[in-house]
Amino acid sequence: MNAALTGYNFGYLDEATKRMIRRALLKAVCIPGHQVPFGAREMPLPYGWGTGGIQVTASVLGPDDVLKVIDQGADDTTNAVSIRRFFNRVAGVATTESTAEATIIQTRHRIPETPLSEGQILVYQVPMPEPLFRLEPRVAESTRLHAMAEYGLMQVKLYEDIARQGEVATSYNHPVMVNHRYLMSPSPIPAFDNPKMHMNAGLQLFGAGREKRIYAVPPYTDVRSLDFEDHPFKPVRAPHACAICGSEESYLDEVITDDQGGRMHVCSDTDYCASRPPV
């Protein structure tokens, strides 16, 4: 094996665990948006820090893959660095910061600005896979609601937001309907990213380690953000241009520059930003 860390299998997980996860992944692709329970293992990183995404990536990854890891859209945030280094140690795979060059992209909280192409796989780290958990914390009960496609609770919640605040209050992790059947959490991506899930050419896989669920959106699959006819879904971004590349389309991080109210806005997707000429 070309694993750089001796004493562990390629990709860290043992083969039986990978098979179990792979079986869950295949079923997840066959039932778009449905959460498949799986026997998540303890990983050498804490639950809540990407163990689900890591287990999915470790089960999918092969020696020819090129891996990109982002957190908050950036390749060089601490957790992204840590996870990339983990796979470099346990699988010895090539890594990249370029969205276009990657075959597998593990992400937390963002979808890259550069559209995915066919054959690329986007692996999301998911903290709470159950879109209904704030409305129905009992798992046995939410499982039953999914079985019956009974999503009235969520419609009522969104409608109450509108009644109270004039608009839907969720700005990230805004629930989506997948293939007209399953209500799904897109993970805590900003609502700005939601439309990118719809009819995406790439395969989107979701891993929740602590909650032990895997789900998927196949390529070219209908993904609609929940909304109402009179209150259509609106993706939101800060109304500014990136201070580095000038982009007026990308999602921006707000950076505080002093204690006098000074602000600047920069692309959250560092690869996208770096690929554009500076202003």
């Binding site: 094996m1 390629f10 295949l26 999918v60 092969g62």
Partner: peptide, 15 residues
């Protein structure tokens, strides 16, 4: 190890 991985990926791609 690698045979299982590449066959799985082919099935994932096919599905």
């Amino acid at each position: 190890v690698l045979g299982a991985q590449s066959s799985f990926r082919a099935m994932l791609h096919a599905l």
